[in-house]
Each structure stands twice: as C-alpha cells, then as structure tokens.
C-alpha cells in the first residue's frame, strides 16, 4: 500500500500503480481543470495529455505514465 496526496488530501493506492491508476482506483475521475471543466484520464497511454498533473512541484506529468511513489505530492493543474 502506498499513500500520496492529491491537492493535500491523502489517497491510497497499490504499489506499482500509475498515478492515474491510484486516482481511478480511489474513485476519482477529474483532477485537472481545463477550459471546459474537469478532466482526468482519457487515453490512458500517454497520447492525449488530458491527465496532466504536477508531481512534487514538477509541472506537466502525465498521470497515466508516471508510477506513483509513496509520499508523492500530486497537484491539480489549471489550464490558463
């Protein structure tokens, strides 16, 4: 079991899961704010860039491609 935070809230996942996997597994569907509202995972394989998050202060990380690490600080990105 691993624990990450998403906008400060703790979320649990299984070791080895991608960040998108952890979030979907926790019942979350939207974690980015786009022009039209919330977005989450869409293509699941790194193509669409809909699932972007900041991870430990680094912007623009595809949640579906990044393996979650215990303690990761995940933050929402808002499309300007």
């Amino acid at each position: 079991m691993i624990r990450i935070t998403v906008d400060g809230e703790p979320v649990q996942g299984r070791e080895g899961q991608t960040i998108a996997g952890v979030l979907v597994g926790a019942g979350r569907t939207a974690w980015r704010t786009a022009q039209t509202g919330g977005r989450g995972v869409f293509c699941g394989i790194g193509v669409c860039h809909d699932c972007l998050v900041s991870v430990n202060g680094v912007e623009g990380v595809r949640a579906c491609r990044r393996e979650a690490v215990d303690g990761d600080r995940v933050e929402r990105e808002v499309r300007p």
Partner: peptide
C-alpha cells in the same frame, strides 16, 4: 469531454 469518458484503450490499460 466529461470525466468518466475514456478510450477503450485506457479502460484496457488501467
């Protein structure tokens, strides 16, 4: 574009 819509590939990959 609503959250909860994914590609079939995403459903498979996850």
């Amino acid at each position: 574009t609503l959250p909860g819509v994914t590609t079939a590939g995403a459903a498979q990959a996850l």
